[in-house]
């Protein structure tokens, strides 16, 4: 009962990984003083595991509570990592391979591929084996890996370019993390999510600036603030300057477009 240092416990997947990483406070909150040790099991498995089949209706159910959020994040990171891996592999399109060796775009996409791989692997290595979702199969048929940016005014149905898709994934990731923070009960997980989401926001802003300069905060992703009096008087105007966070159900309507049948997400446990 004295071992409370999360990092060491998260590290040791064989001994239960995240299951043991719950703070004493949560442990006691779930169990009450009288229920003793059963709380650890409850949380590791999530109390809904018994009645929610992860593969019900051919979807991947992320689960509930903290584990649900971690799986949800893992799913989105899988999508991003797979996308950038395909971009830089160059086997399915020429956009990346045609970039200059010292170009900013090559440097940026190479970095993004490494970052998203790191995020994906982190979740893969830390979510307990008995709770983790499977490896998802992406469907990138809506992306043309030969193209950087889709032509302005392209007709509906035109495939996304690499940068269009990168922007969509990065913005979606930021909105998703922000909108899922409220479902996290363990402050350590909240802190971990916070470490990742600001990196996603940095990605999103730069990809947007590459697409169209000064759109690092655009009205599609941020509730932009407009002063109604002197702009030099703070706090008086319309809007909030807040990111437009999205709930999991909204996020997966986009994410599922990039996932194959059998890999589409079910987030009914997060609400």
């Amino acid at each position: 009962m004295t071992k409370q240092t999360y990092p060491a416990q998260l590290e040791d997947k064989s001994s239960g990984g995240l299951r043991n990483a719950l703070p004493r406070r949560d442990f006691l909150r779930y169990t009450g003083a009288g229920l003793a040790l059963t709380g650890l099991v409850l949380n590791g498995c999530s109390d809904d595991d018994d009645n929610v089949d992860p593969n019900a209706n051919n979807t991947v159910n992320v689960g509930t509570s903290d584990i649900g959020v971690l799986n949800y994040a893992y799913a989105l990171e899988q999508l991003e990592a797979a996308f950038y891996a395909q971009v830089i592999a160059g086997g399915t399109g020429t956009y990346f391979t045609s970039l200059g060796a010292n170009s900013a775009e090559r440097q940026i996409l190479t970095d993004l591929a490494a970052h998203e791989k790191a995020h994906r692997d982190f979740f893969k290595n830390t979510i307990p084996a008995n709770s983790i979702i499977k490896e998802l199969s992406p469907d990138f048929s809506a992306i043309d890996f030969n193209v950087g940016k889709r032509a302005a005014g392209a007709p509906a149905g035109t495939k996304l370019g690499v940068l269009d898709a990168a922007m969509a994934f990065e913005d979606l990731g930021v909105a998703a993390y922000n909108g899922a923070g409220r479902y996290i009960t363990n402050p350590v997980y909240l802190a971990l999510a916070g470490k990742i989401v600001s990196v996603e926001a940095r990605h999103a802003a730069l990809i947007r600036d590459l697409m169209s300069y000064n759109t690092f905060v655009g009205s599609d992703v941020v509730d932009l603030f407009t002063p109604t009096g002197s702009a030099s008087t703070p706090g008086v105007g319309n809007g909030t300057g807040l990111e437009k966070s999205k709930r999991p159900a909204e996020v997966i309507t986009t994410a599922n477009q990039f996932l194959q049948e059998g890999s589409k997400l079910n987030v009914s446990g997060l609400a």
Binding site: N178, G181, S198, A201, A204, F216, V217, E243, K244
Partner: peptide, 15 residues
């Protein structure tokens, strides 16, 4: 709300 400020600050930093 704080998270939604946090990510906007990160966008600013990026720019």
């Amino acid at each position: 709300a704080a998270l939604n400020i946090h990510s906007v600050e990160a966008r600013h930093s990026s720019h």
